[in-house]
Design a protein around this nucleic acid. Structure first.
Lengths: 158, 158
DNA sequence: TAAATTTGCATCGTGTACGATATAAATAGC
DNA sequence: GCTATTTATATCGTACACGATGCAAATTTA
């Protein structure tokens, strides 16, 4: 098998594994507060800007609404956020943080530090990390472009 | 928030997103053969070396057996592989490819090429990709070390 | 403005992931 | 040789992911 044909194994499996292991590293830090990693992502989106429709949250996380909706419903049941119909557009469901959801920001302040220090190693340093981020951003940008394109037409757009 | 504290957002969310989007890129190529991406990973392990116990497959994929077992059961039901008790060790479940499982290797020969060419873009080239692989390997190695350590003791080992 | 289309969200079904737990076979210690 | 522990796998419960589909509100179009 030619080298370039192994690119997918080289890349996709590594991304898949690294993602799972890093999410597992978050688990003990988040579960004590009754949170999962995707729920933590939702909180970061809402801490950045409260009271957003489901669609905006989903887009920022590159997720579909059929993934985000049940996730938000669970968080609503936990009293972390509320969901109300939009006033301008009755189709929209506006998601807002409760006091409990806001307070979690302080309680989770140590999480990024803890996980960050666990990641730093070997070739991953504060100096080299930006290069890694840029390459991952390229992959994400490229694949989300391809996806958006095929979603519309059902065909390739190249 | 200090820069290094944002390392987790910078990294984990990117890995999570890139992994999901790349897996989605495999979907149309695999689903026509009734496969999922994790099932494709199992096939690659068995194509490399047939007739392995569940544990070996799980270790090579950095997965737990409680994830791999149902996955293998579904693949057995599809006639892709068989599962038999080990002769030396009756606890082991030896997983072997059927003819259908072997034949899939040829049918899926174009998959790595197709996905690989979809990934190549911007900063991701045949030249820069090895650097990315090395950084991901560092992350995986580091996190799996941490995990193995905490699994044993229930405490940090640093 | 009435009909057709689009948009925002939700429900459903299937397949992972994974922590917790169960069970039987193998091994260790005495 | 017999109990205690470890090991290999499996089961269970919960929470994503996501394709497929449904539905009502908004928008476009005729």
């Amino acid at each position: 098998m030619k080298e370039e044909f192994k690119l997918d194994n080289q890349l996709c499996f590594r991304l898949y594994t690294a993602s799972r292991l890093l999410t597992q590293a978050y688990h003990p830090l988040l579960s004590v507060h009754g949170l999962t990693y995707p729920q933590y992502l939702v909180l970061m989106v809402l801490w950045e800007s409260d009271a957003q429709p489901v669609n905006d949250i989903a887009h920022k996380l590159y997720l579909e609404t059929n993934t985000v909706t049940p996730l938000l419903q669970r968080m609503e049941k936990e009293g972390i956020l509320t969901r109300h119909r939009g006033e301008k557009d009755a189709r929209q469901m506006i998601v807002s943080l409760t006091k409990k959801g806001c307070d979690l920001q302080k309680k989770l302040a140590a999480v990024p530090f803890t996980v960050g220090s666990a990641v730093l190693c070997g070739n991953i340093t504060l100096e080299t990390a930006p290069k890694l981020f840029q390459m991952l951003d390229d992959i994400i940008g490229n694949l989300s472009d391809i996806k958006r394109c095929t979603d519309k037409t059902g065909q390739s757009c190249s």
